[in-house]
């Protein structure tokens, strides 16, 4: 699920950026620093959308670096248990398959794949129904449901299932 929230961060800025466009430098550095990171609490920071407030800078003794407390708005993505996501399959093996929904990695183990789909090893390992009409392989797009999350301080990992109504392949690259 996506959220638009305000976060705060202390930015350290090198003295060489002091000048007319200190503020622009600060913002671009902020974007470079936080976009794409993940915190267990808020999820993945997708994009910084604006700056709320930049506090007074504090010059650090000895280094000359200046610390600015910056409040910024950003979009975060946080997966939840029970959430339905669309994801791209990245790897298939006999234990199941891995998929990605943006920054989130999701593992679907083979007992959470419908019983009528069989693992086929080979050059392009995949799960296929007995009549061959549905195939899950690398780069397939699947709709899945998150049934478990593992949230560390800097990492979120999910396991999902496609064993439910309206879940499974939504766009098969082989047929396109």
């Amino acid at each position: 699920m996506f959220f638009h929230i305000v976060l705060e961060r202390n930015m350290q800025l090198h003295p060489r950026y002091f000048g007319r466009n200190l503020r622009e430098n600060l913002v671009s550095k902020l974007m470079k620093d936080v976009e794409g990171t993940c915190s267990g609490r808020h999820g993945f920071v997708v994009a910084v959308t604006g700056i709320e407030n930049i506090g007074k800078g504090l010059i650090r003794d000895g280094t000359g670096f200046v610390t600015f407390p910056v409040k910024y708005q950003c979009v975060v993505f946080r997966p939840f248990k029970g959430e339905i996501l669309e994801a791209v399959v990245t790897m298939v093996n006999k234990m199941g398959f891995f998929a990605e929904a943006g920054p989130v990695q999701i593992f679907v183990s083979n007992h959470l794949i419908p019983d009528d789909m069989e693992f086929q090893s080979g050059d392009m390992p995949n799960y296929t129904t007995s009549d061959g009409s549905v195939k899950i392989q690398k780069d397939s797009e699947v709709r899945l449901k998150i049934i478990g999350t593992r949230v560390d301080a800097t990492e979120i990992f999910c396991i999902g299932t496609i064993k439910d109504d309206f879940l499974g392949v939504i766009n098969d690259p082989a047929t396109v």
Partner: peptide, 16 residues
């Protein structure tokens, strides 16, 4: 368990 899956994948073969 399955939540550890990401760490268990090896690139040599398809097993955990």
């Amino acid at each position: 368990n399955a939540l550890d899956a990401l760490r268990l994948v090896s690139f040599e073969d398809e097993d955990f």
